[in-house]
C-alpha cells in the first residue's frame, strides 16, 4: 500500500501512528501538551521535534501552532534541531568557569568534527557532529558548584572534570564522532 505524503506531514506513516498513540494516551489530561511533546521527542530519531511533527501535533490536539511553538521554545528540554546520539552538556557557571570549564569546551571543539560550525558563547552553544553522534551544549549552572567543573554526559553528572577525564569519557562513547 502506498501512502501519499506531503512535506507538511511527518515523513513516515509510522511516525504519525506513533504520535497518534501518544496523543490518545494524554488527551484531556492536565499538561497534555507537554507530555505529548516530551514523548514525541524521546521517540523521535535524533531526539528532536521537527516543524512537521509540531504541525501534526497542533492539528490533532487543536492547540494553535503559535502556542505549540511557544511551549517548545520555552522549555530547554525540547530540541528543535537534530541531536547526536550522545549529549554532552558543559556547565559555564561562574564556579565551573573559574575551575576551567572553558578548557574542556575548547578540547571538545578541537577533537569533534562540527563541520563549519564553531563555538560562539555570545549565543546559545548547540553543536552536533557531522555524523550526528555527539551534541555539545552549555548550561548556565547545574547547581553543583561544589563539584566544579561539572559536565553532564547522557544525563549523568561527571564532577571535577578535567581534559584527561573528558578524553576517557569520549573514548567510552562511540568513537565515530571524533576527527
Amino acid at each position: 500500500m502506498k501512502y501519499s505524503l506531503t512535506k507538511h506531514r511527518p515523513e513516515k506513516i509510522k511516525d504519525r501512528l506513533r504520535i497518534d498513540n501518544i496523543i490518545s494516551r494524554h488527551k484531556d489530561t492536565p499538561g497534555e501538551l507537554l507530555n505529548i511533546l516530551e514523548e514525541t521527542q524521546i521517540l523521535s530519531k535524533y531526539n528532536y521535534l521537527s516543524p512537521a511533527q509540531l504541525k501534526y501535533i497542533a492539528e490533532k490536539t487543536s492547540y494553535p501552532l503559535s502556542v505549540v511553538y511557544s511551549v517548545t521554545t520555552f522549555y530547554s528540554f525540547f530540541n528543535l534541531k537534530p541531536q547526536g546520539e550522545h549529549c554532552i552538556i558543559v556547565c559555564r557557571g561562574t564556579a565551573c568557569h573559574t575551575k576551567g570549564s572553558r578548557r574542556i569546551l575548547d578540547y571538545l571543539e578541537s577533537v569533534l568534527d562540527f563541520g563549519d560550525e564553531k563555538i560562539n558563547e555570545g549565543e546559545k552553544v548547540f553543536l552536533t557532529t557531522k555524523d550526528k553522534v555527539i551534541t555539545i551544549k552549555t548550561v548556565a549552572c547545574f547547581g553543583q558548584c561544589a563539584l566544579a567543573p561539572v559536565v553532564e554526559v547522557d544525563g549523568i553528572i561527571h564532577s571535577r572534570m578535567t581534559v584527561e577525564k573528558m578524553k576517557k569519557v569520549l573514548s567510552a562513547l562511540k568513537k565515530k564522532g571524533l576527527k
Binding site: P51, K55, L65, S66, V68, Y69, S70, T73, F74
Partner: peptide, 15 residues
C-alpha cells in the same frame, strides 16, 4: 505568542 525566554523572548509566529 511569546517565543523563547529571557533576552531572546519576543512575540512571534510559528517557527
Amino acid at each position: 505568542d511569546f517565543i523563547k525566554r529571557g533576552h531572546a523572548m519576543q512575540v512571534s509566529t510559528f517557527f
